[in-house]
Design a protein around this nucleic acid. Structure first.
Lengths: 212, 212
DNA sequence: CGAGAACTGGACCAGCAAGTCCAGTTTTCT
DNA sequence: AGAAAACTGGACTTGCTGGTCCAGTTCTCG
């Protein structure tokens, strides 16, 4: 996807430095949250100085917007190729399984890097809120594409609304991740995603038994 | 519910002060988040001093735990009596409608006071995590009761798992609130809750048309 | 009534936060 | 080459943070 946005005039070295900053900040923010990450931390982790931070970003909020894009890129990247094969119930279930397994692999510590960021920043700067919104949309895009394909190929009834389905799945995903992080168990996430996929299945033209 | 926990020896005045502190802190945290609320802010809003804060609470984290209980109490209280009549699909839909309307009434600003707190604190102090977990359980309890009643009365098939259903609904709720807060629209919340209720309906013994 | 506990006020501290500033180096481009 | 622009280092400022401390007041209860 390469979700870059503003690039005044970057030399190779400058680009590398900027990348280094964003990568380090993304790691720290994922682990400690936006408020819990200081610019000094970012400096140390990226081996840069204050002036470099302020050379590439207007302020902390600006850096956090870049981090949001970065987290989105990472998420989408990590879920390929499954994310590109969400055009069948089997594909959805495969994706679900991988997702749940990945959370278990991380001991269900830390929720969604993007969801946490949204929870923390969506009520602040409007500019940031819009970025977060676009990040969610970017993530949901493959879902939307898959569902639309399913409907167009006649696997879903014509009255199925891919947009509504994708949004509901994302909600189940985010809520499931939040509860999973709180209870340190993948169960809420698994149940939420099962519900969401069953919901899609309820629009299928070919009946089949639910997962449960 | 009255979810109090530790009370060493409180006089009437002391209890009043403590209550004042928690109420003020809850307001501030709902609006600015836990990290965005300083003890000085709490002091000013509750007309107390540092020594009072530290007289009633061991530290900030301790105060935040009290705030979590308080938010839970407020949420549950605000949703009565609908929360006590979740023993039918009609009851669930009534609750859904009120909830969505309330979010619209608040211009969809600010997510779930409990959800935001969980997102921010669940990865920190384990003691706090457990409190958050219990808060979610307390909130979900009426849901669980209603669903269990529905099954016991034969309105849901015997293989319906009230616990799983309640958890999935809570996930949809939290995820819907997060996306709604990010997009400043109640649509994601509405879609998520519709999905969740349709999911419950899919276990109903008496068939009926879905909402959509 | 009187002693001890509950309660209160606010000065104070050490550390850390974001953001500013300037002097110096490296790269680019003509 | 040489000027402009991109880039870097880090000291410094200002304000706020959670937390400590102590001196004083009010309440409870035998």
């Amino acid at each position: 996807m390469t979700t870059a946005q503003h690039t005044p005039k970057l030399t190779a070295r400058g680009a590398a430095t900027r990348t280094r900053i964003v990568a380090a900040a993304a790691d720290l923010v994922r682990e400690h949250g936006a408020a819990g990450t200081s610019l000094d931390d970012v400096m140390a982790a990226s081996r840069t100085s204050k002036s470099q931070l302020y050379h590439y970003f207007a302020n902390k909020e600006d850096l956090l917007r870049a981090v949001a894009w970065q987290q989105t890129d990472r998420i989408v990247e990590a879920q390929r190729p499954d994310l590109d094969q969400l055009d069948s119930l089997a594909g959805l279930r495969r994706w679900r399984d991988k997702f749940v397994a990945a959370r278990d692999g991380a001991q269900n510590v830390g929720g969604c890097p993007l969801g946490s960021l949204a929870s923390e920043l969506a009520d602040g700067d409007p500019q940031t809120r819009v970025v977060l919104q676009k990040c969610f949309a970017a993530w949901a895009s493959p879902l939307l594409i898959g569902l639309t394909a399913m409907r167009d190929q006649g696997h879903l009834r014509p009255d199925a609304d891919p947009d509504a389905l994708a949004e509901a799945i994302m909600a189940a995903l985010q809520g499931g991740l939040l509860l999973s992080k709180t209870s340190r168990s993948s169960r809420p996430l698994a149940r939420a995603l099962d519900m969401a996929i069953d919901h899609v299945a309820s629009f299928a033209t070919v009946r089949e038994a639910p997962v449960a």
